[in-house]
Design a protein around this nucleic acid. Sequence first.
DNA 1: AATGCATTTGAAGATTCCCG
DNA 2: CGGGAATCTTCAAATGCATT
Length: 300
Amino acid sequence: MTPDQHEAVTTALFAFWTARSDAAAAQQAKGNVDVGGRSGVTAGGHMDQIARLLAGVAVAAGAPAEAVYYKAPTGDPNKRDKIAHRYTLPSYFRPTKSYDVVVYDTLGEPCVIVELKSQSGSYSNNANNRAEEAIGNAVDLQRALDEGLVPGDPWTGYVFLIEDDDISRASGGAKDSAAFPRDPIFADWTYQSRVRLLCQRLVEDEHYVAAWAVTTSRPECAGEKICPVILQQARLDKEAAKKGWPTPERLPHEHRFDWSEMSQDTGFVQFTASMTARIRAAYPQGPGATAAEQLALPGA
DNA sequence: AATGCATTTGAAGATTCCCG
DNA sequence: CGGGAATCTTCAAATGCATT
């Protein structure tokens, strides 16, 4: 990974967290009472930071900005009217599906489609939900392409961002028994490794051309209802009180922003190299497409 | 401007499982 | 058996865009 790439990813992932806390603060100011950590998410915008990062990669690879669509928030220089028309595509098992980044080629057909997912906290509640959604999206998009509902033969990418904390990293016990032996690959049963396996298998089975699985830790404490350290401390205190033990030591409590890849084959470098190759094929003249070519684009 | 629709991401409550 | 924790099922809050 080049220093430029590292900086770009770092900036986007840090913005992912600040967008969440900004949105939560804005909602509180408006008097909305949303529960738990969801307030920072329901306001939206956090994944837009990742979408913008990938949109930037697409432009750097040679796509004109006019051909790159994502849910740009108000004030984003890439925002334009009716933009949702362009990143919302017809679907097969449902009417429509909004993707996070869509890039069009000079024929007006999608040449790059990216789906983003993130998960922080509430892992056990939602891990399997996210897997269902991911697989469903993949099959749905492939069928829509097969049926010609979505034209062209686009490069498809899947991104999963999971929070890096003690819970997502800890290897818990797979409690579920099953009617038949589980795939031994799930012996490593952390939520993070489940995400990595999901991404790897989505690519292996050609549901997507590439996947990026990344973890990131949040820069600030999420509060007593969410922070794994505070929750763990509360559990220890409770246990000690029950058994008449002395008050347990305080756990070290600090939050530091960072991020890391989950594996080489699901890394940012692999992902963007693959995407860049596809865009270069669609725009062989490279960055700075001519005005005439830009005019041929839909919605331009 | 007002309303409806689709989408997204967590949370609540119920259930299951482990282990003493 | 029963307490406690992990997991599964269901669905709700909030937003933005399109339409009337």
